[in-house]
């Protein structure tokens, strides 16, 4: 159990973390989501006692981090920033951490095998790939067999196999009743692993909810239509009190309507439909909408603001697996 209460961190006049209060419960994977620069890493560093909060409090199992004796037995953390001396072999790196917390040496070899680094135990991490370094960091987190685990952007820069491995590991750890707290700036990644969601933007809490209700509340559902006579169709929809909008590639999108109703409406007016499909906006869009006001570093191409229809992707940059990509031999 991790509890934050009014946690605040200011650097000069800039507020990195702003009165955060939430709890992280055991038994589920809790996703910690926010755009880059939202204050996720700062929050995690304060949880570990590395950074001192300007105000507020964070407690691990009811104690401050520096009140924990042998903290590796309570909480294991993988931070985003590298925290390994490149000149000390993988095994010795884990050994010195283990010794400081009274963890038996046998456990060092155990976790090395667990993360698949047994064969490079005597190698120095300066020659490790990103994925191997990440695995060594995870081995260190698992060293004390802690009940709480914390991962800061664990899939960053990993290959698909590594990503898959970490996802399963986190789910497995949660299923054993542990508290698992994972940060990410990718909603799609969270959707695959997290059951609970804490969203922050510019250091402020934006949402603290289950993944299920987050999806329900935040995803835009609409019906997409294609017809040979779009003008007439539009008139019919408007006459019925609906608000059709322009979709991608000449499609019409209608928010807040049932596909059944629209189908019947078209039939009544003897209109031909080429497509009638209920759509759900991606979670990524929902996340962007939620955090749009708080994104720290906007790119110059504007994101769709709240309420505006999602901009059509320019041809050739479609997301997903379109015919175009297939033709190009992907």
């Amino acid at each position: 159990m991790i509890e934050l209460e009014g946690l605040t961190k200011r650097y000069g006049t800039k507020t990195a973390v702003d009165r955060l209060s939430f709890g992280v419960r055991p038994g589920v994977v809790t996703g910690f989501l926010g755009p880059n620069g939202a204050g996720k890493s700062t929050t995690m560093r304060m949880m570990l006692g590395l950074d001192r909060p300007t105000a507020g409090d964070v407690r691990i199992d009811g104690k401050h981090y520096d009140q924990l004796k042998d903290p590796l037995n309570h909480i294991g953390a993988l931070l985003e920033a590298k925290s390994i001396h490149g000149g000390r072999t993988a095994r010795n790196h884990l050994l010195c951490l283990a010794q400081s917390n009274g963890i038996p040496t046998r456990r060092v070899d155990e976790v090395l095998d667990l993360v698949g680094l047994g064969s490079v135990a005597k190698k120095r991490p300066s020659g490790f790939s990103l994925g191997m370094g990440q695995r060594l960091g995870i081995a260190a987190a698992l060293l004390g067999d802690p009940r709480i685990l914390m991962f800061d952007e664990p899939v960053n820069g990993l290959d698909p196999e590594g990503i898959h491995w970490i996802r399963n590991l986190m789910k497995h750890l949660a299923s054993e009743g542990r508290t698992v707290f994972v940060s990410s700036h990718l909603m799609s990644e969270m959707a695959l692993t997290a059951e609970h969601l804490v969203v922050i933007g510019r250091g402020r809490l934006l949402a603290d909810t289950t993944m299920e209700s987050f999806i329900e509340e935040n995803s835009r559902t609409y019906v997409r239509l294609r017809a040979p006579e779009p003008e007439r169709l539009r008139d019919v929809l408007v006459a019925d009190g609906l608000a059709p909008t322009e979709g991608a590639e000449g499609a019409i999108e209608v928010e807040g309507a049932q596909a059944v109703r629209i189908g019947e409406l078209a039939a009544e007016h003897r209109l031909v439909l080429h497509e009638l499909s209920p759509q759900q906006a991606s979670l990524e869009e929902a996340f962007m909408r939620l955090t749009a006001q708080t994104v720290e570093y906007h790119a110059h191409t504007a994101l769709p603001g709240p309420g505006e229809p999602a901009a059509a992707p320019p041809p050739g940059q479609q997301q997903g697996w379109g015919p175009q990509q297939q033709k190009e031999g992907f």
Partner: peptide, 19 residues
């Protein structure tokens, strides 16, 4: 400096927070 330049300090203080 080896603690700071490599980031090892974060692992070290994570293991021994009593500075």
């Amino acid at each position: 400096s080896g603690e700071y330049s490599t980031g090892m300090i974060r692992a070290s203080l994570g293991a021994v927070p009593q500075r």
